[in-house]
C-alpha cells in the first residue's frame, strides 16, 4: 500500500511542478575502496561455515568475489588454540575437534592483498532454558472458502521465565504425516516444513530474513511468548497433523543486531522514500557479521 501511495505523491509532484525531472545520476565512486565481507556464525553444536567476499560499489553489476590471496584464521581465545579451517569452493569450514562451549570467545581474522585486515570477535551465549512449551486454543474448522479443506488455528506458548535479557532466534517447524499413493494402497510419508507465526507489530518480534523470529527479550513485554498460527489449511491427505517443533537459538547480540537490521533493510527495499536502514556489522575494518549461537530443539504434539 505504501508503495502505491508514494507513487501517487510522486506523480502529484509532477502535476504541481508541471513536469518533474528524474534521471540516472552518476555518483563518483573513483575513490571506492572495497572491503572484506564476513558472514559466519559459530554454533555450539559445532557448525561453522564462513564466507569471505569483497564489497563492490552499490551500482556495480559485479557480485563480490572471494579476494585473491585470502588468508583466514579462527582462534578460540578462551582455550588459546587456533582452529584449522579448510576451504571448499568459496567457503571455509571448521571441523571442531572439541565442540564450542558456551562462554568461549572466538576471534576471526582475514587478510587479503589490497584490503584492510579485518577482525571480529564473538562469545557463544549460554542456552536459555525453555521452562514451558504448550499448545493452546487449538481449533480445526471447515474452510469457508475452499470445500473439503479445513483450517487449523492454534497458539504456541513459550515460557522462558525470568532468565535475564537474552536474544533468541526461534524457528518453527511442523512434522506431519500425509497419505499418498493409489486408492486402496496408501503410502504414509512424514514431512517436515517450516511454518511462520503471525504476530502483532507491538509484540517487538522481528521476522528473520530467511526463517523464524528474532526476539530481544528486553524489548518484549509479554511472558510467556505467544505465537499464533492462523488458518493453516489441511485436507484429507493429512493423515496426522503431528507435532510442532521449535528450534530455540540463544544468539549473541551481534547475531541479533545483524539479522534484525538486515531483515528490515530487505523488507523496506521497495520504498524509495523510506529512510535507508543501516546494517549492523561487528567486523572491524570490514563488513558483515561474525556471531554465535547456542541451540536446543523442543517438540510437542498438536493433539
Amino acid at each position: 500500500m505504501r508503495v502505491s501511495l508514494l507513487r501517487i505523491c510522486i506523480i502529484g509532484l509532477v502535476a504541481v511542478g508541471f513536469w518533474q525531472c528524474s534521471s540516472p545520476i552518476e555518483l563518483d565512486y573513483s575513490n571506492f575502496q572495497p572491503k572484506l565481507v564476513i558472514n559466519a556464525q559459530v554454533s555450539a553444536d559445532g557448525q561453522f561455515v564462513v564466507s569471505v567476499t569483497s564489497s563492490t560499489t552499490p551500482v556495480s553489476v559485479e557480485e563480490g568475489d572471494v579476494p585473491d590471496g585470502l588468508k583466514v584464521t579462527l582462534r578460540d581465545i578462551t582455550l588459546g588454540i587456533n582452529i584449522l579451517l579448510y576451504r571448499e569452493n568459496d567457503l571455509f569450514y571448521a571441523p571442531f575437534q572439541v565442540k564450542p562451549r558456551p562462554g568461549n570467545e572466538y576471534v576471526f581474522k582475514a587478510i587479503a592483498p589490497g584490503y584492510d585486515d579485518v577482525e571480529a570477535i564473538t562469545r557463544i551465549p549460554e542456552q536459555l532454558n525453555l521452562l514451558r512449551f504448550e499448545v493452546t486454543d487449538f481449533q480445526v474448522k471447515p474452510s469457508e472458502v475452499t470445500p473439503l479443506k479445513s483450517n487449523v488455528n492454534y497458539n504456541l506458548e513459550l515460557d522462558f521465565g525470568d532468565q535475564g535479557d537474552a536474544y533468541l532466534h526461534l524457528i518453527f517447524r511442523q512434522r506431519s504425516t500425509i497419505r499418498s499413493g493409489a486408492v486402496g494402497v496408501p503410502v504414509y510419508e512424514e514431512i517436515m516444513y517450516t511454518i511462520e507465526p503471525e504476530f502483532p507489530e507491538e509484540s517487538g518480534y522481528i521476522k528473520h530474513v530467511e526463517q523464524g523470529i528474532l526476539i530481544a527479550l528486553s524489548e518484549v513485554e509479554s511472558n510467556p511468548l505467544v505465537f499464533s498460527f492462523v488458518d493453516f489449511t489441511i485436507d484429507a491427505l493429512f493423515e496426522e497433523l503431528g507435532n510442532v517443533q521449535v528450534e530455540v537459538r540463544t544468539i549473541s547480540p551481534e547475531y541479533y543486531n545483524y539479522f534484525e537490521s538486515l531483515s528490515r533493510q530487505l523488507l523496506n527495499s521497495q520504498d524509495p522514500f523510506a529512510e535507508p536502514i543501516q546494517v549492523f556489522s561487528n567486523v572491524d575494518g570490514g563488513l558483515g557479521n561474525f556471531s554465535s549461537y547456542n541451540v536446543a530443539i523442543y517438540e510437542i504434539g498438536l493433539f
Binding site: F32, P34, S55, T57, E210, L266, L287
Partner: peptide, 27 residues
C-alpha cells in the same frame, strides 16, 4: 542525504538465495 556506500552479498543458507545488501553510510 543518506546514501549507500557499497554493496555486498548475504550468502544465505540452504535453499535461500544470496541477496544483495547495501552498506548504508552514516545517516
Amino acid at each position: 542525504i543518506t546514501l549507500a556506500e557499497s554493496k555486498f552479498l548475504y550468502p544465505g543458507s540452504g535453499a535461500f538465495l544470496p541477496l544483495a545488501i547495501l552498506e548504508i553510510g552514516e545517516r
